[in-house]
Design a protein around this nucleic acid. Structure first.
Lengths: 204, 204
DNA sequence: ATTAGTTCTAGAATATTATTCTAGAATCAT
DNA sequence: ATGATTCTAGAATAATATTCTAGAACTAAT
């Protein structure tokens, strides 16, 4: 978990910044976004108000820093996994399995992402978020377009593909993190990969 | 939109309470949950702090009241639509089309629901939310179980069905409300109903 | 190694916002 | 008509976020 923030804030100099990020994540996860105050985080991290505001600007900035680091960590696993695949079906399976494995292994981060998403999306970090999402799905969509030409993928409105592919597994992950279902996302990943493929494929 | 709150707070006596709910919804939608203060709502509704706290207890209670009213409004359309269907495929299509139509017609309420969900889920209204969701999916799951016996529906882990059916359309609705896609949910509803069916059906 | 510049730490002071409290007005049931 | 209940109002208080100032630690260039 230390490693998640090492990617965005590397080096010994940033050790305390990473420490604060970790403590903040723990607080948010245990108490919820609203209920954790900046002072709660200060106490847990043995830090000071000044330090926290120096590094993150405000509470929203701290939330966004964790959120974007988590998104980057996810993407750092998904991109290479999809590049290894050699057909659309394999790429879709890689996307879904990698995503569901990540959630299963990083439940605190994943839970935080669901809680913080709408906050980040309505903050002035919206731009950064949109840029990452655009990059995230851009290459996938071009890839699918080829599949359509070859007759492997159904021709559907371009804007529906992302939801058709990731919506089901995302919904299940949220349910698991909220304790409403028991089986880990990882253990059902095949089912969801298969369902996503059925949704967009011309033939099984 | 007045009618949404009439269901839960009927009668002339509750007119002001409904008025506050409507004004609060408008504020939340325009400014976001965090950015709208209780005083913002007081101003917009020409009300008073005392009145607001009398009716809702606290800000969280106000959010939950809107959320649960919206959920009930949705359900009031979905339940009869599904009961009219006479086979699993029709029931699934009714569920998805009714849901997507509702979102298209009530974008403010729908957007609010996505923004407030995790807040309500981590509040002490979690119980009420769980009860409604249990009821919401309970009958659907029993219905699907029959389909499995008849060989129409694939036999999958029970806890995966709800995500498989509603995940895609929910994801698209969120994207539409966030301005990331252009086509209304209603206009793509057939595609999503079809995809959900493909995900769980034995044969097309 | 010294020094100028930069980043980091600290916490008191301030500003913003949520919530409580008390009292009176309106409504209802008998 | 009257006692009980619900509703309205806003000042007072409490909780929380944010700003500000000053000094410590570190970095790079001489």
């Amino acid at each position: 978990m230390e490693s998640v923030f090492e990617r965005v804030e590397p080096g010994a100099r940033k050790a305390n910044k990473r420490h604060i990020l970790n403590c903040a994540l723990a607080c948010f996860d245990e108490l919820g976004l609203e209920a954790t105050t900046v002072d709660t985080i200060r106490q847990r991290s043995n830090s000071s108000i000044g330090t926290i505001y120096h590094h993150f600007g405000n509470k929203e900035g701290l939330v966004a820093a964790i959120y974007l680091a988590a998104l980057d960590d996810q993407q750092a696993l998904i991109t290479p996994a999809m590049e290894l695949a050699d057909d659309p079906k394999g790429a879709i399976a890689a996307l879904i399995k990698t995503y569901m494995d990540w959630v299963s292994q990083q439940p605190r981060l994943a839970r935080f992402m669901f809680q913080a998403r709408s906050l980040v999306a309505s903050s002035h970090f919206k731009g950064e978020l949109d840029a990452r999402n655009k990059q995230r799905y851009g290459s996938l969509l071009n890839y699918l377009a080829e599949g359509v030409k070859k007759g492997e993928i159904r021709s559907l409105p371009r804007e529906t593909y992302a939801s058709l592919l990731i919506g089901q597994s995302e919904n299940y992950c949220r349910a698991w993190l909220g304790g409403r279902v028991k089986g880990t996302p990882a253990e059902h990943a095949e089912i969801f990969a298969e369902a996503a493929w059925r949704s967009v494929a011309c033939s099984p």
